[in-house]
Design a protein around this nucleic acid. Structure first.
Lengths: 110, 110
DNA sequence: TTAATATATCGCAATGATACGATTAATGTT
DNA sequence: AACATTAATCGTATCATTGCGATATATTAA
């Protein structure tokens, strides 16, 4: 059917999956890394940094904005993008919460 | 086109995206949580735990196996599933490495 | 050997994601 | 006002993902 049965899973499971999906494309990772590296808002020159057309970059930015991981502020003819610190830490914590669980099953168990 | 231009991004960007994609479905999160909770291998009763058909569960397991996050051992008529500790820690570290970067851009900057 | 049980794979249908050219919208410049 | 610049949106093509019934495969039990 191609439709994820979201309603049959817990809120936490859906949240982790939603955050992971936002990170599930190298272009979006590249955008986040660039925003982190520059230590400031990026106004404009994001398209030149990526090997994708302007429309495609805009679409990836839209997805990151949709979950609140980045925010854009109109600044003249261009738009300044920032990582949203609160959401950034929330996503980190949600992922960390899953991966903080120790793996009990050792090599010998099966 | 619908084809991700993988070759135009760095290995690290693709790695993060690949791991994130494996986590980008609530059913796969549910599987991992169940394996963590049970503190041991799970032999058989995974299908009953999920609100999905057997074929669909098998497919999600296949995806987790494809990146090495879980491993299956044939045990009689059933298969025992474990989380692979090494891969688990690697995925955790790769994600943590991205999210350990501080967000320099504060509220006031734009 | 035959039957039962459990898992994987196949085939199909429906929806989602990716990519980009073209267009639109908004702002600044002349 | 007219033009230039920048980003968002639209339309469309293509491939990927999700889901499940049906079937194949493998092992155990009778």
């Amino acid at each position: 059917m191609g439709v994820t049965k979201t309603q049959n899973f817990t809120q936490e499971q859906n949240q982790v999956a939603t955050y992971a999906k936002a990170l599930a494309h190298p272009a979006r990772i590249a955008i986040l890394q660039y925003l982190l590296k520059k230590q400031t808002c990026i106004c404009g020159d994001l398209v030149e940094e990526l090997p994708l057309a302007q429309a495609t970059v805009s679409q990836h930015l839209k997805e990151l904005k949709a979950i609140g991981l980045i925010k854009g502020t109109v600044e003249g003819t261009s738009v300044c993008y920032c990582i949203d610190q609160h959401k950034w830490e929330e996503v980190r914590d949600v992922l960390l919460n899953l991966f903080s669980s120790p793996v009990a099953c050792q090599d010998s168990c099966c």
